[in-house]
Design a binder for these strands. Sequence first.
DNA 1: GCCGGAACGCAATGATGTTGCTTTAAGGTG
DNA 2: CACCTTAAAGCAACATCATTGCGTTCCGGC
Lengths: 190, 190
Amino acid sequence: MSPKPMARPGGRSARVQEAVHAAVRDLEAEQGRAKLTVPAIAARAGVTPSTIYRRWGDLHELLSDVAVERLRPEEPPSDHGALRADLTAWARHFLDEMASPPGRAYVRDALLGDPDGSNAGQCSAYAAGQVETILARALDRGETAPPVEKVMDLVVAPMMYRILFRPDPLTAEYADHLVETALTAPDESA
Amino acid sequence: MSPKPMARPGGRSARVQEAVHAAVRDLEAEQGRAKLTVPAIAARAGVTPSTIYRRWGDLHELLSDVAVERLRPEEPPSDHGALRADLTAWARHFLDEMASPPGRAYVRDALLGDPDGSNAGQCSAYAAGQVETILARALDRGETAPPVEKVMDLVVAPMMYRILFRPDPLTAEYADHLVETALTAPDESA
DNA sequence: GCCGGAACGCAATGATGTTGCTTTAAGGTG
DNA sequence: CACCTTAAAGCAACATCATTGCGTTCCGGC
């Protein structure tokens, strides 16, 4: 079911997977999405199309797979010494990444080829993990911090909604505004 | 660019469009999404595939088109005599519709075949329109009501985010909670 | 160093996507 | 009301892509 069963993590399987992922990245960068087709990717990766179909099912699942890997945060959120500063910086960064044309494309891909929703869930988990880190750091400092769910609802969700459903441009001020809302909202215990 | 140019609204064009849309609905109901292919739809609609490709570009754009039409609200939100009741009822209804398997499928389709984001924008506009109606009604009654944007950020966005990115089931209580948040949040003027 | 099984390559087949050319009919005009 | 223009649909050929059976290779374990 999972696109990357990797029943055999070592050796050829791993090489093929890496080659295919690299081929997707390269082709996309060089020729754009329109040229992203399974045979083209296979040729570029030095692999036969049937291999790709067998391992990933179809193009969308493969793209979803690659997109999720690209959406994985590479570093923990930067530490600015205070909750508000940390959250603001992270929200701005997140918005910047996700609202950019390539970012939007990755998010869409991740959602697209995802029969069971596990890839989309992974994306959400990445964001939640980053937020979690920030909040834990705040608690360590002795600050009061809202629960993760609240930040997801009040900061992450609105940004994602606008990215996906609205063509309008998004600004850093909007991210700031959302963080402000999350930090000043009443702490219901629900 | 738009999937439905309709430069000639009357006569054959309209009949073809309706026939194709109907074919999509029927085939989906009868044989499931897997069997939804352009040639099959064309055959069912009594049309040649090239007609569909020329008018809609590809299968995804056609499905997106159909999905948006299905997501259009058919009635104004029901009137319960008070803002809180109206918003709660609408949010529950919205969540119910969108979180159901067919609802999720429509939303995904709408997002999917949508190069310029106009279809997704339409979906958002539908929801905003419904909210707008509710808020205007409240103002007419003399109630104080939050701006539309606030309701979109605090109620609609979190629901959509969870629908799209999280596999977990969603409850009516969650919708209630979001409405509560939106109505009790401090009224910043920003 | 041998064995079992999973993954890959190859190649053929069927289905789908795409396009030039022709034909029909909608909508405007005299 | 007949004619003319032109968008849209039909037809048909072609290119490309998706799918599958079978043989081969190579990983992983004994």
